[in-house]
Design a protein around this nucleic acid. Structure first.
Lengths: 181, 181
DNA sequence: CGGCGTCATTAACCCAGGTTAATTGGACGG
DNA sequence: CCGTCCAATTAACCTGGGTTAATGACGCCG
């Protein structure tokens, strides 16, 4: 399985670090040229606007992998924050270590390729949901697709992931309770 | 340059086909297990709902590359249509030919990796725009980023790409003309 | 125990965008 | 030159979601 391969390969190269709830993994504007493998816990990746508004890109639970493409590909600062929502432990591998591992261990390329493919597909799915679905439908789908995740999140964070305000989400939930038989 | 490498490699393996304006390259629900390289012209990739509404994923002009990830990765039918907006000529390579080329010619893997990386970044950008920006801001950005493309498109298609109706886009354009000095 | 901060809900009001439909204006073919 | 068709605009009306603010419901801590 993909995750275990990576873990085995990276376990000694990388550092395993604890992130208590509320700590940033990296911040918008920083160059975090590392790969982060979430071993335990839960983090959120989100954009923050100049006027303090928050828009959540994704939640990454244990088993997930994060990297800032802008940093990896062009040495540009990250465009988003990553914050621990629960006490988490994260395996960190620098891009340099990753590159050296990759030459020693060609199959790793295939693993990274798969990761990228998975990322592209996830983002396509999200594009579809924003283009074609109402906030209501996006909420239903999210609950169906990720019930375990939903249980661990605040309504605020769910709303900001769906692209609406907590107030609007609350209205949607109420409609949901009243309508069905 | 990426595109030329691919073209050179694929030119004899693939078939160069003309698509007159209005012809489908492939359709939602079909398995189009090919790579399509747009040599000339312009196509749009879009979702079509059961009730006939259209939501545009992207426009691909000459130089662009299209594939349905669902087909490539999991042999699932494509989730979207691709339609020629102008008379176009497209180089088509089957997945089988691509695989054989890839073993003969390892650097091709790097090219495909770059393509995937570019795709993931484009989709992240689009996610950002839907999450954080108003329709108005999305329109401004699209005009600034792709002036050449905007000139070749109908208002209808631009609107459906931005996730709004042509009526709403028309209002935005009017505001634009009235407001600035 | 009481005060405080935080999150969820609700209400009231506003606005952007959807919907429907009428109008305009080319482009095209007879 | 005159219909026809279709894209674009405009108007009128409606609705979903934003904004602000008030109210509960907890949980925490002094």
């Amino acid at each position: 399985m993909l995750f275990m391969e990576l873990v085995d390969l990276l376990a000694d190269k990388g550092k395993l670090r604890p992130y208590p709830k509320g700590r940033f993994v990296f911040r918008q504007g920083e160059k975090a040229d590392k790969l982060f493998l979430i071993r335990q816990g839960l983090v959120k990746a989100y954009y923050e606007t100049h006027d303090g508004k928050e828009f959540i890109k994704s939640f990454i639970p244990e088993g997930g992998l994060i990297a800032s493409l802008h940093v990896i590909v062009a040495d540009q600062p990250s465009t988003f924050n990553v914050l621990a929502l629960e006490d988490s432990t994260i395996l960190e591998v620098t891009k340099a270590d990753l590159d050296s591992l990759q030459t020693q261990h060609p199959p790793l390329t295939q693993v990274l390729y798969s990761f990228l493919l998975g990322l592209a597909m996830k983002k396509e799915k999200r594009e579809y949901e924003f283009l074609c679905l109402s906030a209501d439908e996006r909420y239903q789908r999210f609950c169906d697709a990720e019930p375990g995740l939903v249980a661990r999140l605040s309504q605020m964070d769910i709303a900001r992931y769906l692209g609406i305000t907590p107030v609007a989400l609350s209205r949607i939930r109420r409609r949901r309770l009243q309508a069905p038989a």
